[in-house]
Each structure stands twice: as structure tokens, then as C-alpha cells.
Amino acid sequence: MQFLSQLKPGQHALISAIEAEESLFHRLSALGFRVGKPLSIMRRANFNGPLHVRLGTTDIILRNIDAARIQVNTL
């Protein structure tokens, strides 16, 4: 089991769990982060900047600290 924040650009994974407080959870699910959904890492910004993730047809950027709340299984 891994966290989204640990993945490298080019990796694919399935979301296995989301551990976030209610407001963050709702925000994530509104953008399509749901258990069972596949995603891939597009890139990571310099200087430990945000992650660029692709979920289905949606591109999302999020910080490592928030990505660390999402558990994934790599494919």
C-alpha cells in the first residue's frame, strides 16, 4: 500500500482509500477522487511543488500534503 504523494511521474494506480476530514473529503470527491478509480501521475512541479494527476478525463493539481491522505495501489 502506498500514498499518492509517494508516486512518481508516469506511474498508474487505483485509489484504495481516502482518509480526510469532511470538508477535504467532499472537495476531493467533487473532483472525482473516489475509491476504485484509476489515476496516473503526469508530473511534479519543481522544488517539491504540487502533483499533476490525471483522473479519467480530469486533470487535477494538488499538494503533497493533501496527496498523502489518499491511499493507492500501483498498477
Binding site: L28, D59, L62, R63
Partner: peptide
Amino acid sequence: NSEPFILELPP
């Protein structure tokens, strides 16, 4: 603050 930063990138 500890506001989460999550944003959609439109095409």
C-alpha cells in the same frame, strides 16, 4: 494556515 490546495487544470 493549512488550507488544502487542490485545483482542476482545464484543457
